[in-house]
Design a protein around this nucleic acid. Structure first.
Lengths: 345, 345
DNA sequence: GTAACCTAAGAAAGCGTTTCCTTATAAATT
DNA sequence: AATTTATAAGGAAACGCTTTCTTAGGTTAC
């Protein structure tokens, strides 16, 4: 059996409560006693039992992570390791650990969250995505359980601490960049329309298109079910239009890889025939051929701030706030000025 | 304050111990009482407190994950989400959750493991990597704490349940494949030599080279510090040799992206000038241009089996075992038969 | 020299479960 | 009818810690 606070107390010839106070570095204990107790702890190799402490304390020093359904392919996106790295960094600063439940389906994930919350397994929760009408978010609000969201809540955004990019503006800028290169027929390849980020970026794209006096055409808007079969289909359709786009705004670098590969299959190359620009600037964007023009959204910082916001929320009941993580456009080689009409394929 | 077992007991007019037995579905409780208690739980929205349960039970229903230092760039490798997806799937089947500590440095990570173990925060641990002389592994063995390793332990492999590919054979086969295409000067681009997987693959490569009667040359062996600056340097050196390789075996698909991009920079293209083959077959391998020839190591299954092995270990004290997850070579377009000498660059 | 006040540390009551040990009641055995 | 045996459920200790309340002993103050 592991060594407990009582064993330490006995050896140091003090009461268990004293040992507890030494651990908490309570000023009411004399230096001499502290030293004595610490020696005993050292000698016995004492480590506090976290469950007991959590129980007495009502605090677990752990934060729960809620990912999108892992059945989802999105899960393989390097976005997640990176955002977790950010969360982990901040969590570590404050001695928090991370906790993930393991549901696959929608319902299982929800059940996992309920267990985290009601079972007091975590002190707070970070939602790693933001969807339209999310049941989990509603639940957490009802329970008044501390949580933060990465992305923008679809409803009640002002009541929920959330960490987001200005995706509207980012998309607008990215689109403007393509327009500035002379492109007039610009397609938008989005992801799941249930994700708020998709909506924001689509709106930003639309704004840029309209502001530039270009036609906003529904046929130019495509939503890939991530990057395989469905997406290929979509890209094929897009490029069999009578007036196919000459440039694409794509929701995510990983998708871009899929898009580029599909374009290749139909004999179009990037950036010679089609310019492609996307979001996230994952490490790979730099290494792909061509290197991708991408909006760096500071994934690490999203995670870092999300954890920071949550801890404020837990420790000081801080009021809800919105944190906007800056983005910046990284121009590489996947976009080219539009050729004069005759020169295009 | 949350509703406790006592509240339920009071409402159902039974003792707390009875409620506890109903939760555990103990046969000693009559069906009638069970129904009554369940109604009360339902009515009050009761959820057991996990910390209290863990304390009484000495079991947490959580397994700890130990990753390589997140400072490490390896962290951004989609290997991790995928292996975690596998772990998560098995864990979920048995109602376990996942727990990650948040250290950055070597020491912090070690300290995190000690806290997981001594603090009884988890029932067992999965090491997501295997290194030469790993302090954590030694510690877990000393403590006789349940754990499994993904990869092959450097020492005492027969005493430790581990889930591995036959990396030796996989590398051998991959190299043989290149040899079968006529390549005779084949380089090896490895990762961190502290990782056992690197060693195994290097040995498999060497075996294939020697078996084919080719020269095993040290200059052809390069170890990239993952895929950026250092790696570019290395690749440059490799291709300024008097007799540069015509094909490369690369440790990891992500590295391959770096390698291909560096080759491009020095005017070599894949597979026209250089054939490249690697390991892992991450989703992106298929989408890159050219699509990569890669050994699929079944990452998901590695995670799944690792969790399974650990749970056996926890639940039934199963003896140590080695699980070999099959691999298979996926041939795509990154390798070509070697051109006759005169035709090469 | 006694009352008043500090200070350091102990005793004990939780925290919410589980589980061992009892007890009460009903059924079965003699 | 008295005793044993089953059965269903309750009581209370235990899990390892924190924290409130107390106490003991030493200072200071009058």
């Amino acid at each position: 059996m592991a060594v407990t606070i009582k064993d330490v107390a006995k050896l140091a010839d003090v009461a268990p409560s004293t040992v507890s106070r030494v651990i908490a570095n309570n000023p009411r204990i004399s230096e001499k006693t502290k030293r004595k107790v610490k020696e005993a702890m050292e000698y016995l190799g004492y480590h506090p039992n976290f469950n007991a402490r959590s129980l007495a304390n009502r605090s677990t020093q752990a934060i729960g992570l809620v990912m999108p359904s892992s059945a989802d392919h999105a899960f393989q996106n390097p976005f997640f390791p990176e955002v977790i790295r950010g969360i982990s960094t901040k969590a570590h600063e404050k001695d928090y650990a991370l906790y993930m439940s393991t549901g696959k389906t929608e319902d299982e994930i929800f059940e996992g969250v309920v267990q985290m919350v009601q079972g007091r397994r975590v002190d707070g929760i970070i939602l790693l995505y933001s969807r339209v009408d999310d049941r989990i978010m509603t639940y957490l609000q009802e329970q008044e359980f501390p949580f933060t969201v990465i992305g923008k809540p679809y409803k009640n955004a002002e009541l929920i601490t959330h960490i987001d990019n200005d995706n509207f503006k980012a998309a607008q800028e990215l689109t403007q960049y393509l327009i500035s290169l002379g492109h007039e027929r610009i397609g938008f390849v989005g992801g799941n329309l249930n994700l708020v980020v998709t909506i924001d970026r689509l709106l930003g794209y639309e704004k840029a298109i309209r502001d530039a006096g270009l036609h906003y055409k529904d046929q130019y808007i495509v939503h890939e079910e991530f990057l395989k079969e469905g997406g290929q289909e979509a890209v094929r359709e897009l490029f069999s239009l009578p007036e196919p786009p000459t440039a694409l705004v794509v929701m995510d670098d990983l998708m871009t890889f899929g898009v580029i590969s599909t374009l290749h299959e139909i004999g179009l190359s990037v950036p010679e025939h089609i310019s492609v620009a996307s979001f996230n600037n994952v490490m790979l964007s730099e290494l792909s051929s061509p290197p991708l023009t991408s909006v760096d959204i500071n994934i690490f910082q999203l995670g870092y701030e999300a954890a920071g916001g949550l801890l404020d929320c837990i420790q000081t009941c801080a009021p809800a706030k919105r944190v906007v993580v800056p983005h910046n456009l990284i121009i590489r080689q996947s976009c080219k000025p539009k050729l004069a009409e005759k020169e295009t394929v």
